[in-house]
Design a binder for these strands. Structure first.
Lengths: 339, 339
DNA sequence: CTGAAAGCGCTAACAA
DNA sequence: TTGTTAGCGCTTTCAG
């Protein structure tokens, strides 16, 4: 154990103690195969006696294998991003990687250099959780600078690009929204309205496609911000309209905003109005009434993003996706229209 | 702009281009005062022409000023920790620091070495968001190893220690819970029950103190986990008891669980039962009915934690706290008992 | 299987 | 005000 304030134990201290060269110590801590078992044991003993811990900066600088990822995101508190981040952390921890986090302010404009200088060094690997315009832009900048070391998650316009399969890990947001919309249609609703989050695209596509399928012209989607309050405000006119019987929301938080607005407008749920969310956030099942929504495995997506990055770094094949497929959870905010 | 794959631009490349020594470049990027304006301009021009960006590992290794913090936490998705993290990020970004994040699994037991090896190097600065037993333990380990470079937030038994003022940044959780309990008492409730989160202490102290103040013996606190589901389950017996008219909850999520359980038990809110949360999470104001709670500025606390760490690192005085003081927000889940 | 040498990109200390 | 030198702790060569 090194005393506080003293010079930390280095690879040379260990080498001296074990009676080997520092290089042999390096081999041991990197699990190199060509080390005699006896030597390995001696070194390991010295390591634990001295309380040696490798210095990550030195390892990185000396050009060893990369052992950290920088995650770019815009809000660590939103359910989707928080869960994705947890998934990345799970994967990173299992692989011995350090996670750095770089939060981008949606209201700020970043130059290419602002983004790139957030990496620990040129070409450091990164994962972008792209859920808004700023992170989508960051994704583009990072990918242009280091195509091999950047993967992304998210649902935005870039995910329509042809080479997306190489670097994108994402649920099929289109199918998810389509499914929820079809469900509402199947309950007998004439049409389904859509409350949209900022900067996302594919969920809205799915909703529109499901309507087109049955020959219904899609009503104008209503635009909301990310907060529950903004959703309540954005949906105020919608919920006041007695012709509106079904609303599909970009995510659960938005759905809670709609429920709040509907309550204030005196409309009963699900008699007057069906509301469907998306995410299955922790509160959905416990809301009063419990929210009909689609279970999305963001954590699995995060883990998948890390694994794709890891595979690319080591020149391996793209691993198979590992997340649960989305599931529609019909609870108590949806049903057939009253007539 | 360095081409992908090429060797990154170093301080020597910049020096050559600007016709100065690499040390002068170092001075410019570190804002050292003793550089002639003309020289500085030349160097800056070379930097931007070449797209030079400093390598953080090299800077750290060479023993420059520290520019990163590792944050230890146990769940980045919970409202309190997520907001604290955001506050730390805000402060770190303003000071040009990188934030590393180290998530500790509550179900795992870590050795001292497990914890210490998560730092980028021996003695790297850290902030611990201590909200459970595992993180509280990490706090102790880190503080013992590097007392000067570790600060913490949170509400646990350690915060009762005498030297806490040196390294702890925290709201007055005791006062917060006391205030909420007094409010319920003032509405005419005979007693107030407490639904507790794991591993926290001071909120419970405040609740007990407020009851003691008016000579009421505190009922046995009910223990919940961190999830809404566990709260609903833990509170099932409590809400079924018609003698229970007021429940104060460790945080908002727990309160939502209680509301859910109360609804299932057929008790009306707030007629039969008053429920008070703690946090003012984003959903509180928009729940149906809106939740009475206490607004806690976790983001401010996070910023304060970073600023305390930063001040310690630079040998400055402890900065003044910068967060909003807690405020009781009486909404629609609380009121006088029915008789 | 092990060791010696060179250098990653940067900063601190010293010299001019 | 600027330049030179000597590392930081480690990994990658390359030699035995």
């Amino acid at each position: 154990m090194s005393a506080a304030g003293a010079r930390p134990v280095s690879i040379f201290d260990v080498a001296k103690r074990a009676g080997v060269s520092h290089q042999t110590v390096s081999r041991v801590i990197n699990d190199a195969p060509q080390v005699a078992d006896a030597t390995r044991a001696k070194v390991k003993a010295a390591i634990s006696e001295l309380g040696y811990r490798p210095n990550r900066s030195a390892r990185t600088l000396a050009g060893g294998a990369v052992r950290s990822v920088t995650v770019f995101t815009f809000d660590t508190a939103l359910y989707g991003t928080a869960e994705t981040l947890r998934g990345i952390e799970d994967g990173a921890a299992a692989a011995g990687f350090t996670v750095l986090i770089s939060v981008l302010d949606p209201d700020q404009t970043y130059t290419d250099d602002d983004i790139l200088s957030r990496l620990s060094h040129d070409g450091a690997p990164a994962i972008v959780i792209a859920h808004d315009d700023t992170t989508t832009r960051a994704r583009r900048i990072l990918r242009e600078a280091r195509p091999g070391a950047v993967v992304a998650t998210g649902d935005d316009k870039l995910s329509r690009e042809p080479d997306a399969a190489d670097w994108l890990v994402s649920l099929d947001d289109r199918a998810v929204a389509e499914r929820a919309t079809r469900y509402l249609l199947s309950m007998g609703h004439r049409t389904v309205h859509y409350l949209a989050m900022p900067g996302r695209a594919r969920r809205q596509d799915g909703w529109a496609d499901a309507l087109a399928e049955v020959g219904v012209e899609a009503p104008e989607p209503v635009q909301s911000g990310w907060t529950i309050g903004s959703a309540a405000e954005a949906a105020a006119a919608l919920v006041a309209d007695p012709d509106v019987t079904a609303i599909m929301c970009g995510n659960d938080d938005l759905a809670f905003g709609v429920l709040h607005a509907a309550h204030r407008a005196g409309r009963s749920i699900p008699g007057d109005l069906s509301v469907v969310g998306c995410d299955d956030s922790p509160l959905a099942a416990f809301n009063v009434p419990p929210l009909t929504t689609i279970d999305l495995d963001f954590r699995g997506v995060g883990r998948g993003a890390f694994e794709l990055l890891h595979a690319k770094l080591e020149g391996r094949e793209r691993p198979r996706p590992v997340w649960r497929s989305p599931e529609l959870l019909v609870r108590e905010t949806s049903g057939p229209p009253r007539h």
